[in-house]
C-alpha cells in the first residue's frame, strides 16, 4: 500500500494523535469474487456513505470491538472485469480492507482489497508528498550547502499538518501557562475559527502562528466569542516547549510579593 504517510520528526511527534484523528482519502482497487453489474456496484458503494459500523480486522493494532466510522464520500470511478476502482474520503481509523470485504458481502459475490493508495491524510495531500529518494537526496544537499531553503523542499513545519483543526489564537502572555498545561481561559483568547463545538479538538496558536497545544473546546465558537471569563478549552497535548515565551502569570511566593508592592 502506498501514498501519504505523515512522518513526524523529534518534537513534532507530539502531533501524532491529531494525525490519527484526521480524515483520510484513498484510491482503492477492490477485486470482486464474482460478476456484478456496474449499476449494482455503484448502488452498493453509495449505501456505504455516512455512518458505518466496523469491527477492526484480526490483524489490527486496536481493540477488536464494533465501532462506528464516517464515510464522507465513496465515489465509484471505474470497473474493469472484476476490478473496481473507487475513491473514498473517511474518518481516521476506517479500515478500507474491511470496507471492501463488507461491500463484497452486500453485493453477494464477495470482494477483497487489491490495491490501496492514500491520497490525503488531514491537510497533507498526495501532490505535495516526497519520496524516500527525495528525502535522502535533499538531506545530503542540505548537509553540503547548509541552506535552510533546501530543508523546505522536503520538510514542513508541523503546523502545516494541523490546519484542518479549528484554531484559537492566544495572547503572548497566555502562551507559557498553556505550555505548562493550564486550561485556556477567555481573557487569553484573541481570535478563533467558526465551527467549534463543545468537545471539538482545537489547535491553540500563538500570534506568530506557532502551535502551542492541542486542546478540547469547552464551548462553541459563538459562546467562546462572547465569554469574558471561564475555561474555553482543556489542554490535551502541549506542543511547544515550556519557557519558549516568558511566564505571564504569577504564583506562590512571587505572587504574594507582587501584591505587597
Amino acid at each position: 500500500m502506498t501514498g501519504v504517510l505523515p512522518v513526524t520528526l523529534e518534537e513534532s511527534r507530539k502531533i501524532v494523535q491529531a494525525l490519527l484523528l484526521g480524515g483520510k482519502e484513498y484510491v482503492c482497487v477492490m477485486k470482486l469474487h464474482g460478476d456484478a453489474p456496474k449499476q449494482r456496484i455503484e448502488e452498493v458503494l453509495n449505501e456505504f456513505q455516512g455512518e458505518i459500523y466496523q469491527r477492526p480486522p484480526l490483524r489490527a493494532s486496536v481493540k477488536r470491538q464494533l465501532r462506528t466510522r464516517r464515510i464522507y464520500y465513496l465515489d465509484f470511478l471505474e470497473v474493469e472485469g472484476r476490478n473496481v476502482l473507487f475513491r473514498v474520503g473517511c474518518e481516521g481509523g476506517t479500515y478500507i480492507r474491511k470496507l471492501c470485504f463488507d461491500v463484497g458481502e452486500v453485493l453477494g459475490c464477495g470482494a477483497h482489497m487489491q490495491e490501496l493508495r492514500r491520497t490525503r491524510a488531514g491537510s497533507l495531500v498526495e501532490d505535495e508528498a516526497v519520496t524516500l529518494h527525495d528525502v535522502a537526496y535533499w538531506f545530503m544537499q542540505w548537509q553540503q550547502k547548509e541552506d535552510v531553503e533546501i530543508l523546505k523542499r522536503f520538510v514542513q513545519p508541523m503546523e502545516k499538518a494541523l490546519t484542518l483543526f479549528p484554531q484559537i489564537v492566544i495572547r503572548d502572555s497566555a502562551v507559557d501557562a498553556v505550555c505548562h498545561g493550564a486550561d485556556l481561559t477567555a481573557p487569553g483568547v484573541l481570535s478563533l475559527k467558526t465551527g467549534i463545538s463543545s468537545g471539538s479538538i482545537t489547535v491553540i496558536s500563538s500570534l506568530k502562528g506557532e502551535a502551542v497545544a492541542l486542546a478540547r473546546a469547552k464551548a462553541s465558537s459563538e459562546q467562546i466569542f462572547q465569554m469574558v471569563h471561564g475555561v474555553v478549552a482543556k489542554v490535551e497535548r502541549v506542543l511547544m516547549p515550556r519557557g519558549t515565551y516568558p511566564k505571564g502569570w504569577r504564583s506562590g511566593k512571587t505572587a504574594n510579593e507582587h501584591e505587597k508592592t
Partner: peptide, 18 residues
C-alpha cells in the same frame, strides 16, 4: 525557524513505497 528548529518541529509528507 532556524534550520535545527525547522527540523525538530518538522514533518515530512512522505509518499510511502509499496
Amino acid at each position: 525557524r532556524p534550520a535545527a528548529d525547522y527540523l525538530k518541529f518538522g514533518i515530512i509528507n512522505l509518499d510511502k513505497p509499496a
